[in-house]
Computed example of a mutant assay.
Amino acid sequence: MTDFKAYRIKVLGKVQGVFFRKHTQEKATVLGLVGTVENLKDGSVLINAEGEETALSNLLNWCYEGSPASVVSDVKHEEIKSVGYSSFSIKR
């Protein structure tokens, strides 16, 4: 049995205007995760991701690096209740 979890991840730094959301969607899809990614008004990026714990851990580790042009200063995460997403999408 796999360990299914859901994480809310907030990524801070230079993460808007650097294709961070697009790269997050691509990484999450490769990892088999579902959820959303969106820019917040404070300049950070919010990721809600659901899937196997190992895949979530891989996404979380990737967030410290981010997209090629991003400069990540901090990553915060918490476990949340699953929403039941069917895919991984970018919220505008």
Rank of each mutant, 00 (worst) to 15 (best):
T2V: 15
K5M: 15
K5W: 13
A6V: 12
R8H: 12
I9K: 10
I9P: 13
I9Y: 06
K10Q: 15
K10F: 03
V11E: 04
V11H: 02
L12H: 14
L12T: 09
K14V: 14
K14N: 13
V15Q: 10
G17F: 08
G17D: 10
V18S: 08
F19I: 05
F19L: 14
F19H: 13
F19T: 12
R21I: 11
H23M: 10
T24A: 11
E26Y: 01
E26A: 05
E26H: 01
E26V: 03
K27E: 13
K27I: 05
K27R: 14
A28I: 02
A28C: 06
T29E: 13
T29A: 01
T29I: 11
V30L: 09
L31K: 03
L31T: 04
G32R: 08
L33W: 02
V34W: 02
G35Q: 05
T36I: 09
T36D: 05
V37T: 14
E38T: 11
E38G: 04
N39S: 05
N39G: 06
N39Q: 11
K41D: 15
G43M: 07
S44L: 10
L46I: 10
L46C: 11
L46K: 13
I47C: 09
N48T: 11
N48G: 00
N48F: 02
A49H: 03
A49F: 02
E50K: 02
G51I: 08
G51E: 12
G51V: 07
E52A: 15
E52M: 13
E52Y: 09
T54W: 08
T54Q: 15
A55E: 07
A55C: 07
A55T: 04
A55P: 10
L56F: 06
L56G: 13
N58Q: 15
L59C: 07
L59F: 01
L59H: 01
L60E: 12
L60T: 09
N61H: 09
W62K: 05
W62N: 04
C63R: 02
Y64I: 00
E65S: 08
E65V: 10
G66M: 03
S67Q: 07
P68Q: 02
P68N: 07
P68E: 03
P68K: 03
A69P: 00
A69T: 04
A69F: 12
A69M: 14
S70W: 08
S70K: 03
V72W: 06
V72P: 01
S73P: 00
S73L: 02
D74M: 07
D74L: 08
D74F: 02
K76Q: 13
H77E: 06
S82I: 12
S82A: 13
S82T: 13
V83S: 02
G84D: 08
Y85N: 03
Y85P: 04
S87F: 03
S87M: 00
F88R: 01
S89T: 12
R92A: 06
